[in-house]
Amino acid sequence: MATTSDIEKAAGVLRAGGLLALPTETVYGLGADAENPAAVARTFEVKGRPPDHPLIVHLGGAEHLDGWVRDVPATARLLAERFWPGPLTLVLRRGDRVPYEATGGLETVAVRVPDHPVALALLSAFGGGVTAPSANRFGSVSPTTADDVRAELGDSVDFVLDGGRCEVGVESTIVDVTGDTPTILRPGGVTREDLEAALGRPLAVPSTSRVRVPGQHPSHYAPRARVVLVEPEKVVHEAELAQESGHRVGVFVPAPFGDTAVKAHAVVAVPDSAAAYARGLYGFLRDLDQQGCDLIIASLPAERGLGLAIANRLRRAAGPRATD
């Protein structure tokens, strides 16, 4: 785990225009000084991320919003007071401190306050904003441990700040609050139900958006193995058929069928708890890759609570690849 000395070193890396991996409660981020266009541009290079895909600016608290955004509507203030620090990102109008390199050229900026002691200590020591997309190659499985980062990015990162395993395990929920009607642009660690309870109104979760935000690419959060989604009651049968046809199959066995014996190369028993499933999801996908699976059979959970975010990640993982 990170020490005070580690945090001071990490802050120095940011000040020098370097890149570091930092823990958050969601996933590990690839951090850069949000006000340094060259450092932000290097983030895109290391990830292989298209430059028009905006980044999230991480701040140490809602009191630091001045300059990063132009105005904070009442809805945004309410959500910030209720869910920050936490896995909620708000899309607001860009302030003067945010370079266009961080917003993908947009006049909006995504901001959040992470709920992780190491991340908050770093932000305090650094004294500024940090852009931090997930610390992995673009489109691949997000890292939830420091070892995941080291295995994927290696020497491309100047320093890895180890904060242990991420507690939430899926990225933040992104809510657009620039218009009259707040909209969920990406489901994540704060549930739709909790947001609706806080606002006292229903929220839409559109499949497409006029505002570009992270996680909207058709293929995203994807392992090397191809992911195929089927109905829960068909998972075992489809996995065994694929295994018999010569695939090295990894299978996510849904909780109701957890006692079923499966003839497959590797088996993941999906946890009963949605929170446990979300926390373990990316680790499960990475592990199946490491075991040499070329095909993963899974099903979507019920799309309520954290199940909405899990289903979103699985759909993206199963999305069309560049070679399709």
Results as ranks from 00 to 15, higher is better:
Pro271Gly: 11
Thr145Met: 03
His217Arg: 06
Glu45Pro: 01
Thr43Glu: 06
Ser142Ala: 12
Gly48Trp: 07
Val205His: 04
Val27Lys: 05
Val130Gly: 01
Gly188Arg: 00
Asp148His: 15
Gly48Phe: 06
Pro256Lys: 05
Thr89Trp: 00
Glu244His: 12
Gln291Met: 09
Gly31Glu: 11
Ser207Met: 06
Arg77Trp: 06
Arg112Thr: 01
Gly283Trp: 10
Ala21Cys: 08
Leu79Lys: 11
Ala198Glu: 05
Ala74Glu: 15
Gln243Gly: 13
Ala322Cys: 08
Gly128Arg: 08
Leu120Asp: 10
Asp272Thr: 09
His237Phe: 15
Phe284Ser: 06
Thr173Asp: 03
Asp6Phe: 07
Val213Phe: 01
Leu65His: 04
Gly188Cys: 13
Arg212Trp: 06
Pro182His: 03
Leu120Phe: 09
Leu229Glu: 07
Val109Cys: 10
Cys166Asn: 11
Thr191Met: 09
Ala318Tyr: 09
Asp289Lys: 02
Ser142Phe: 10
Glu152His: 15
Ser5Asn: 15
Glu238Asn: 12
Tyr221Asp: 02
Arg70Gly: 13
Asp324Asn: 07
Ala125Arg: 10
Asp52Val: 03
Thr145Pro: 00
Val235Ile: 13
Thr3Trp: 03
Glu8Ser: 10
Ala278Gln: 01
Ala119Arg: 05
Gly104Glu: 09
Asp6Met: 02
Arg315Glu: 00
Ala38Tyr: 12
Ala62Lys: 07
His265Arg: 08
Thr131Tyr: 13
Trp84Thr: 01
Ile184Thr: 00
Arg279Ala: 15
Val72Met: 04
Asp147His: 11
Glu45Trp: 13
Ser245Met: 15
Gly29Ser: 08
Thr4Glu: 15
Val149Leu: 09
Ala264Ser: 06
Phe138Gly: 03
Val40Pro: 05
Arg316Gly: 09
His265Asp: 07
Arg315His: 07
Pro143Asn: 12
Leu106Glu: 15
Ile184His: 01
Asp6Pro: 02
Ser140Tyr: 14
Ala278Val: 07
Ala276Cys: 14
Arg210Tyr: 08
Ile7Thr: 00
Gly17Leu: 09
Phe138Asn: 04
Arg112Lys: 13
Val130Phe: 03
Gly163Val: 14
Glu25Cys: 09
Asp194His: 10
Pro223Gln: 11
Ala32Met: 05
Asp158Lys: 12
Asp71Tyr: 09
Ser142Asp: 06
Gly163Cys: 04
Arg137Lys: 13
Val13Asn: 00
